[in-house]
Design a protein around this nucleic acid. Structure first.
Lengths: 229, 229
DNA sequence: ACAAAAGTGTTGCAAGTACACCCATGC
DNA sequence: GCATGGGTGTACTTGCAACACTTTTGT
């Protein structure tokens, strides 16, 4: 329930609206995908866009991102991080809309929300507003971040094989990595807990399953041994 | 001149205000300093704060940061980059204010604006709002960024000595660096243009002057040889 | 000649890269 | 027994860290 503006004498009148939009990434098939929703109304009616909505009175930006994402797509308990704020005055034809963009990473199997689809990066349609630019920026950040922090695990199932991690990295970075070197480096961080169970799929030796160890990772962060942005 | 909200049927009413605040860093003495201004009015009247103001209708966020900074402090032609957006609903007692924070780096000699002062990090006063947190975040970003990109040159005079660069780095990072290793690494980037002239100060051998070569730096960025955030 | 800062190379270590074969399982 | 992907070690290269002396100038 917004108080009238007159109750806030020090605050100027502004015709600026604040929206919170999220680029949602997931790995599906062996491809990096982005969640797009189709706009039912003008402007850009019929075009696809990244999910988003307007911030409400009493909520923080993080909370708004979470709420909007759940409302629009049904996705919950996903990794969310603020990306950048886009404020060009002409980016929305309706008027002045400033968008705080977030990145979300969801684990497979990622449900497909109604009115949404998982688009591959190779076959992106024309997007509404300046969403193409936002997406490009998000992708760049994801790639950079992947090299310094184990953010990639947020795109994997809770239990995964080393091969799975490597495939994910290769997909996102768009280049192939040496198996032995990759495994050595990954294990040398000591943030993976091997499980007793293995993944039995196909006519070949089953691969050991691992879990990401949040605690050890937090420990490393606190000791400043890692780059975290 | 804002159009009435009724002309924008698709935009919701929002009582959210958008401010753009900037953490201004400079090197003075041999210390990293932050520009603080004293608040003349409530809330937090008399307290010091980082300079900032409200965004206007037709301007981009970058433009707003530039304008506000010049209006409040008289500083122009400084390096500006967006830091993060802070949107906790209780961060301003007047109501909902979302702040897009920027970092600015200014070269010496940095003029001291009226109603402002350059505070050292060692002796920071209690700041208004959540500005202490914003400042802490900015400092962290500055330090990280220094290690991957030559932002540091934005804090130096146009012409500088290698010693000058090293002093700057040591100040900001808070640790001492090996002279030979530092020089080798810096020169190996090939982004410094040595000048014929030298800096003659004091009873000892004068040091060669250098300039930062923006062009070569842009070239490296495009080739993807460098980490740029 | 001496005080003061500028400038300069080498060695050891750690991390990264390149590279090829045996192992366990299902069919 | 063979096809399929899982799992492992070693040599080379490169970048980073540690370390001390000579050079140039002003006084």
């Amino acid at each position: 329930m917004p108080r009238p503006a007159s109750a806030r004498p020090n605050l100027p009148r502004q015709e600026i609206r604040l929206s919170v939009d999220t680029i949602v990434f997931s790995l599906e098939g062996p491809e990096l995908r982005v969640l797009l929703v189709r706009r039912p109304v003008e402007p850009f009616a019929g075009r696809e866009a990244i999910p988003g909505g307007f911030a409400e009175e009493g909520e923080s930006l993080d909370a708004a991102a979470k709420r909007v994402l759940e409302t629009e797509t049904g996705l919950r308990d996903v990794y969310l991080e603020q990306l950048y704020t886009f404020g060009d005055p002409r980016r929305d034809p309706r008027g002045r809309v400033v968008t705080v963009a977030y990145i979300a990473l969801v684990r497979p199997p990622a449900p497909t929300p109604r009115d949404g689809r998982w688009a591959t990066l190779a076959a992106l349609p024309a997007l509404a507003f300046d969403h193409a630019r936002i997406l490009e920026y998000a992708l760049q950040r994801l790639r950079y971040k992947l090299e310094y922090t184990p953010v990639g695990f947020r795109l994997l199932p809770e239990e995964f094989t080393l091969k799975g991690v490597q495939d994910a990295y290769e997909t996102i970075l768009g280049r192939s990595l040496d198996k032995r070197n990759f495994r050595r480096k990954l294990l040398s961080l000591h943030v993976l807990r091997p499980l007793a169970r293995s993944a039995r799929v196909g006519a070949h030796r089953p691969a050991r399953l691992y879990r990401f160890d949040e605690q050890k990772w937090e420990g490393l962060k606190e000791k400043g041994n890692v780059f975290v942005f």
